[in-house]
Design a protein around this nucleic acid. Sequence first.
DNA 1: ATAGTACATCGACGATAAACGATATAATCC
DNA 2: GGATTATATCGTTTATCGTCGATGTACTAT
Lengths: 129, 129
Amino acid sequence: MQNSTITPQSTKEQHIDDNTTNEDIALIAKALSHPARIQIIRLLLSKKTCIGSDIVDEVGLAQSTISEHLRILKASGIIIGEITRPRVCYSVNPVRIRPFMDFLDLILNKDAETSNTTSTCWVSPKAKQ
Amino acid sequence: MQNSTITPQSTKEQHIDDNTTNEDIALIAKALSHPARIQIIRLLLSKKTCIGSDIVDEVGLAQSTISEHLRILKASGIIIGEITRPRVCYSVNPVRIRPFMDFLDLILNKDAETSNTTSTCWVSPKAKQ
DNA sequence: ATAGTACATCGACGATAAACGATATAATCC
DNA sequence: GGATTATATCGTTTATCGTCGATGTACTAT
């Protein structure tokens, strides 16, 4: 079932679709918040796909620890594990990154938008008095 | 004050340099890994800048908790706090987001690159035998 | 000088995360 | 069947995170 873009602010193509919740963004960020997991992603990108035991050798942590990192990445949807017993071939799934990228784009675009306005500090009426 | 910021577009086919460490990426991600902090960033983006007490009212957590979240965001460089005693005006600093974006771009670009190749699973010579 | 405002810091606590070794599962090879 | 390989899960320990109330600091206004 597709929603049909009847959002109140209808056509404003600069405004990136902003319906991703704070929790969704934070969950993706949390999956990316460990150096070993970044290393794993970079490894997968460099080889396109890779089995777990090679990741263990490359990263140098215990097999159970790597398995846990892979589980976290898999749970977030950032990577996919294709089972070909007894191996699992992992690869990066860029789809889940998109909404996160869109959020970061908001930050960078806001920068350009702000550069020609005086950036005065907004203060609520309540706090001003 | 026309600052010469690089326009966010047109970074499609240029080769992104990859010298950011896994730790750097993970630290930025960690700063973004909590819903309250995403909410704070969105709030700052919507108002361009904002004082802390208004953030407390908006988010609905204790003042000390918000202060801690602001400290984490400030420590990561994602936001800047301009002190005008007794207030602090917070605003988003997009500069620190850039290397993080570049990393995510690697993921998305790799996707396009992979789409016309057979994504076979890479297996180390050692594991193959 | 006193009171009020805005923010930071401290200490405590429960919850979650990270790491490991040991063990379990499931397929393959001999 | 028994050994090997690849991965997942369990249990435990240690570290970090998130939250709060209480308190401290620094400026402003009366």
